[in-house]
Nucleic acid binder design. Structure first.
Length: 717
DNA sequence: AGCACGCCGACT
DNA sequence: GTCGGCGTGCTC
């Protein structure tokens, strides 16, 4: 049967209803496996490749597949792969009685492919509109989005919403500038301080794809080093992408790139620019006018052409986790990109996450480190104040500050600014051995024990009660809740040194830099200003607060924050000193004293492997009402060896605090539960696939109750 | 999610 | 006979 679209009445509202009914009937009866494209309107179609495969822009999982549409002749030229389109979508074909096809509104989508035939055995609806001829969704970007959706059990449309910025017609109309020729390969510069630093740069410059986990030396040179890695990649004729945690850090790297490459070779992609400007920059990158990008997490999808290097700075910072579904982490997206584009990979940090250690241990990446002597020389001297010191120190108890700390601050203020790091509010205390401070863990699943009502102990993962806890480390029977400390100390310090100005940097107002003159700089973690010439000293307060969070990462995180603050302090050769108020026997404190974040991460990794924790095992969280979670767990076909922990009740969001409507958080006042599912190494994709399939089936059935599935939950206690 | 189909009971 | 209840399934 040949096409019935030969009449060419493209402008008419449609064929007579009888004919439409006839088409439908014949299609139904003939059951052709591969229908020639036909439209309800009978409009003239494109002569070549008259079928457009379209991804409809709806995040729902059961629509996470392509739909075929017919390409009308007049849209033939513009309807190219990658463009944004609008199509009619939804049930509504039965309105043909009135002679036209109405129901089903216009929705947005992406044209993914042009084909000769459809494997859909019904008449195709026609593309309604090509929104713009700009091919925003390249094959590479589609492939990446697909991989991210699979990894996180999310829908392709959700990922594309993160990956492709909203259109701005004005930005699209402006032509992007002509690309500049590749710059010369840069000198090794301060990369020479690292054992394999110069070799890494040379590999980038000569078109290679080295993969490294870079433990940066303390001090301010890291941003220039990142810029050199970008320049080396550009020199090879390829593009480069750098993702950093926040806008402040992005502008630091941006400044180094401008210093090294001049204007016009790189783009800065952060949320601070407005949507139009941002889309303009994004387009310049996509069109190949600009070959290098530095930006915050949304830049992880930046469509850099001929990508040669992806880099991430400080992957332990939680702003690398996307807040929108399916909540991918920049490190993992860049890992997928490196694998897909076969490009170089650089993960840099002053500290070291367990995930980074795993990349090295698995042999996927090589360590990029300095020799021990260099490491120690670049770092300040670290001194600790623990419980014993506090107990001995009567004055300290009264003033809440030990005399060693007073002394270091006083000496430091003679030579320059002194940083005081105070914890942010809102950490939840968890239980630990009163004697040795080992975190109290469930004997069944090794989850964190938490004190519930009336002092009953309960596991935060599997919900089992613990009636007769004793410490597996030292045998003690008593527990203590680890306390959250005060920022009053900062005020006290200010009063104690009345001649010195006190400056604060925190959530409300983040200072970028402070001058090299003596001053007390009080800051929360992550908001520390850079001091001109480095801080003379730093005081890290309330180590208990940072270590006491009921989180698997508490140790790693505390160390990362301490190291980030200490890295802003002058080297010990120049008198730089840091005092940390925390028990010196604790592992993260010892790692800080030795300045050995990598060793710390390696030990954590070994322990996680033994206990079946992520990232060695893959975990997923399923949260919702008790009924929804139970129903979901009953129907999901989990891969073999999968283990379900819980469900346990989640804390109820106070009605007053309804402002923080985080993705996956229960609505204010509603009681939700959470189950954790874990699988052994290598079964992660099977787990994601199973969860996604079950979620899709649930949605298709229209089970109304909200339910959240989160791969790699960040807060598993 | 919409929205239309379809296979059951009360109605002009 | 026909209108219409909402349970079920599809959306190119």
């Amino acid at each position: 049967m040949s096409s019935d679209n030969s009449r060419g009445d493209s402008g008419a509202e449609g064929a007579p209803p009888e004919q439409l009914a006839l088409i439908r009937e014949s299609v139904r009866k003939a059951k052709e496996p591969r229908a020639k494209p036909r439209t309800w309107r009978g409009a003239a179609l494109a002569k070549e490749l008259p079928v457009a495969r379209v991804l409809v822009d709806k995040g729902v999982l059961h629509l996470d597949r392509y739909f075929d549409y017919a390409v009308p002749e007049e849209l033939d030229a513009e309807a190219q792969p990658g463009v944004r389109v609008r199509v009619r979508f939804g049930a509504g074909r039965h309105r043909v009685r009135e002679g036209r096809r109405e129901g089903g509104g216009l929705i947005d989508g992406f044209l993914v492919e042009r084909r000769a035939e459809s494997d859909y055995s019904g008449p195709l609806a026609a593309l309604a509109q090509v929104v713009s001829p700009e091919p925003v969704l390249s094959e590479e970007l589609l492939g990446l989005a697909r991989a991210v959706a699979d990894r996180y059990a999310g829908s392709l449309a959700d990922v594309l919403q993160l990956a492709v910025p909203p259109r701005s017609a004005r930005a699209e109309q402006r032509p992007s500038p002509a690309p500049l020729p590749p710059p010369p390969a840069p000198e090794a510069g301060s990369w020479a301080r690292y054992e394999r630093g110069a070799a890494f740069l040379e590999a980038l410059a000569s078109g290679g794809a080295p993969r490294a986990v870079w433990n940066a030396l303390a001090g301010p040179e890291w941003s220039a080093e990142l810029a050199r890695a970008v320049a080396a990649t550009l020199a090879s004729g390829r593009g480069a992408l750098v993702v950093v945690p926040d806008g402040r850090t992005a502008s630091r790297v941006d400044a180094e790139l401008t210093a090294l490459l001049g204007e016009g070779r790189h783009a800065l992609l952060t949320a601070e620019a407005g949507p139009e400007k941002r889309y303009g920059e994004w387009l310049a990158v996509r069109r190949g006018s600009v070959r290098a990008v530095v930006g915050t997490r949304a830049a992880m999808f930046a469509p850099v052409q001929d990508l040669g290097l992806v880099a991430i700075w400080d992957d332990g910072d939680d702003s690398h986790s996307e807040q929108h579904a399916p909540q991918p982490h920049a490190r993992d997206v860049l890992l997928l990109r490196a694998a897909q584009d076969k490009c170089a990979f650089l993960l840099g940090s002053w500290s070291c996450t367990v995930e980074a250690a795993q990349l090295v241990e698995s042999g996927w990446a090589r360590p990029l480190v300095a020799v021990r002597d260099q490491v120690r020389a670049a770092a300040p001297l670290i001194r600790t104040v623990g419980d014993q010191d506090l107990a001995r120190d009567e004055a300290a108890r009264a003033a809440r500050l030990p005399s060693l700390a007073w002394q270091v601050v006083r000496d430091g203020l003679r030579h320059g600014p002194v940083l005081v790091q105070v914890p942010r509010r809102g950490y939840v205390p968890r239980m630990a051995c009163a004697q040795c401070r080992a975190p109290a863990r469930c004997r069944h699943c090794a989850g964190p024990l938490q004190a519930r009502d009336a002092g009953a102990l309960r596991c935060g993962w599997c919900g089992r009660e613990e009636g007769s806890w004793h410490c597996p480390e030292c045998g003690a029977f008593r527990l203590r809740a680890q306390v959250v400390g005060a920022r009053r100390t900062a005020e006290e310090l200010g009063r104690a040194f009345p001649a010195v100005p006190v400056r604060t940097s925190g959530r409300e107002q983040v200072l970028d830099t402070v001058p090299g003159a003596p001053a007390l700089v009080v800051s929360t973690p992550g908001a520390e200003p850079v001091a001109e010439g480095g801080y003379a000293a730093a005081l890290l307060l309330d180590g208990w607060a940072m270590l006491g969070r009921p989180d698997l990462r508490a140790g790693e995180d505390a160390l990362r924050r301490w190291i980030a603050a200490s890295a802003l302090v002058r080297p010990q050769g120049d008198g730089g000193t840091v005092v940390v108020v925390a028990e010196p026997t604790l592992r993260p404190v010892q790692a800080l004293v030795r300045w050995d974040p990598v060793g710390h991460a390696v030990r954590e990794l070994a322990e996680r492997a033994e206990l079946g924790f992520p990232p060695v095992s893959r975990m997923a969280a399923v949260s919702g009402t008790a009924e929804a979670v139970a129903e979901f767990l009953a129907m999901v076909e989990l891969p073999s060896q999968a283990e379900v922990l819980g469900p346990v009740p989640l804390p109820v969001t106070p009605v007053a605090a309804g402002r923080s409507r985080r993705a996956g958080a229960p609505p204010a006042g509603e009681q939700w539960v959470r189950a954790l599912v874990r699988v052994p190494p290598g079964r992660g994709s099977a787990l994601a696939a199973a969860l996604k399939a079950a979620q899709a089936a649930r949605m298709a059935r229209g089970s109304g109750a909200a339910l959240w599935v989160r791969i790699d939950p960040p807060d598993i206690g």
